[in-house]
């Protein structure tokens, strides 16, 4: 096993700034529709979604319908149809063949850099599950039926619990790059995998 690597805060800042070029892809009216959102138990995916929402809020983008707006597909479910489609699946996830533009940008989760408190490090290693399903780690998720549409407040509470869980540890063993990004956003080291090393090298 390779030693865990601590994120460099200025590297995180530089990656976040690469997201500033998103308006170039959105068109002038900046109307956006998000499609392919992850299920609730995919906490890494939920942080990607939260990052994208932060990014769009920062850019002053407005919500639109799939028929008229730019659609950003996050990688879950079928690729939607629309006049203008941007594909933004999780790092390492294969692109479906679709008539859209694969965004040449780092993961939208990086938009959360600087907005999540780090707190003093806890102890031990948090092992994230092989599949992106955090129910074994967060008992709260087991109590919520997956079909239930959650209000934003409850969704934020779930993400807050997930943050507390990561902060309670000194480092994270993440099978997916998204888990490593989440660890870095919270100031925690992560054990590199081949996929995560390729991701950090790219950005």
């Amino acid at each position: 096993m390779m030693a865990a690597t601590q994120p460099d805060p200025w590297h995180m800042e530089a990656i976040k700034r690469r997201l500033d070029t998103l308006p170039h892809w959105l068109g002038e009216d900046r109307r956006v529709c998000i499609a392919g959102a992850p299920p609730l138990e995919d906490i890494e995916g939920q942080f990607r979604l939260a990052g994208l929402r932060c990014l769009l809020a920062a850019l002053g983008a407005r919500r639109g319908t799939q028929a008229s707006a730019t659609t950003i597909w996050l990688g879950h479910g079928l690729v939607p149809l629309g006049p203008r489609l941007l594909l933004w699946p999780a790092p390492g996830q294969a692109l479906l063949p679709a008539p859209g533009i694969a965004l040449p940008l780092p993961d939208p989760m990086h938009a959360l850099w600087g907005l999540l408190e780090h707190h003093p490090p806890g102890s031990g290693t948090l092992h994230l599950p092989e599949q992106p399903d955090w129910r074994p780690l967060l008992p709260l998720l087991q109590r919520l039926p997956p079909w239930l549409p959650l209000p934003g407040r409850l969704r934020r509470a779930v993400l807050s619990r997930a943050q507390r869980l990561v902060r309670a540890h000194a480092e994270v063993a993440a099978p997916r790059p998204a888990g490593g990004i989440l660890a870095a956003l919270l100031g925690r080291a992560s054990q590199p995998t081949q996929a995560s090393q390729a991701y950090w090298r790219q950005w």
Binding site: K16, D20, C54, L55, A57, A58, L59, A111, G114, L115
Partner: peptide, 13 residues
């Protein structure tokens, strides 16, 4: 406050 919206994406320093 919503920092992403309030700071237009800038990182609080």
């Amino acid at each position: 406050r919503d920092l992403a919206r309030g700071l237009h994406g800038l990182t609080p320093m």
